[in-house]
Design a protein around this nucleic acid. Structure first.
Length: 170
DNA sequence: TCGACGATTGCC
DNA sequence: GCAATCGTCGAG
């Protein structure tokens, strides 16, 4: 069953770990469907978080993070990889959770490539989209064996923010 | 308008 | 160890 707006409308530090074990579904134009079980996420939280793109303020790139939860935030990194994020929380407080990996496909860049993401996914609504959404598993049992660690690739954010254990695996 | 750089990956 | 490759952002 598809995750609701309420699921994403909570703090990113609650949503990020709960996405572990959930199923990411991509419906291609051909009708073909790709289903991935999320097993790695990272939280990016507010303008104070120097590792979060929103630390630069409200720009055309970060705009969607200031909107409601359950929207897609994609951006091109290193000129070749589209990284997939979901907005969380409520209007006005920029947050996003980065999908870093799945059981079958590891790595944020590889996820974006497998899902054939591009700029057109920016702002896509996971609650109503017919090409990308997230589903709950029937069991719906919260994971207990979650490993937390520092986020990857944000050393520039300084010791404090780079040191937050906002990376979740399980 | 210009130049630096990045929430990465894969090959040398 | 480092190139690939381009949108974004801040400086000029």
């Amino acid at each position: 069953m598809r995750l609701t707006r309420d699921f994403f409308s909570r703090d990113v530090l609650d949503v990020a770990p709960e996405l572990l074990g959930k199923t990411l579904v991509r419906q291609f134009e051909t009708g073909e469907e790709l289903r991935l079980t999320i097993n790695e996420t990272e939280a990016y939280r507010g303008e104070d978080d120097l590792g979060c793109h929103a630390s630069k303020g409200r720009t055309s790139r970060t705009e969607v993070m200031y909107h409601q939860g359950g929207l897609v935030y994609v951006y091109l990194i290193y000129g070749m990889y589209w990284l997939l994020n979901f907005t969380t929380g409520t209007e006005g407080y920029p947050q996003a959770v980065l999908i870093r990996g799945s059981v079958d496909i590891e790595g944020p860049g590889r996820i974006g490539r497998a899902l054939k993401l591009n700029k057109s996914f920016y702002g896509e609504d996971l609650i109503t989209s017919e090409r990308l959404w997230v589903e709950n598993n029937s069991a719906n049992s919260p994971k207990t064996d979650i490993i937390t660690s520092p986020r990857i690739g944000i050393d520039y954010a300084g010791e404090y923010w780079a040191g937050r254990h906002w990376r979740f695996r399980g």
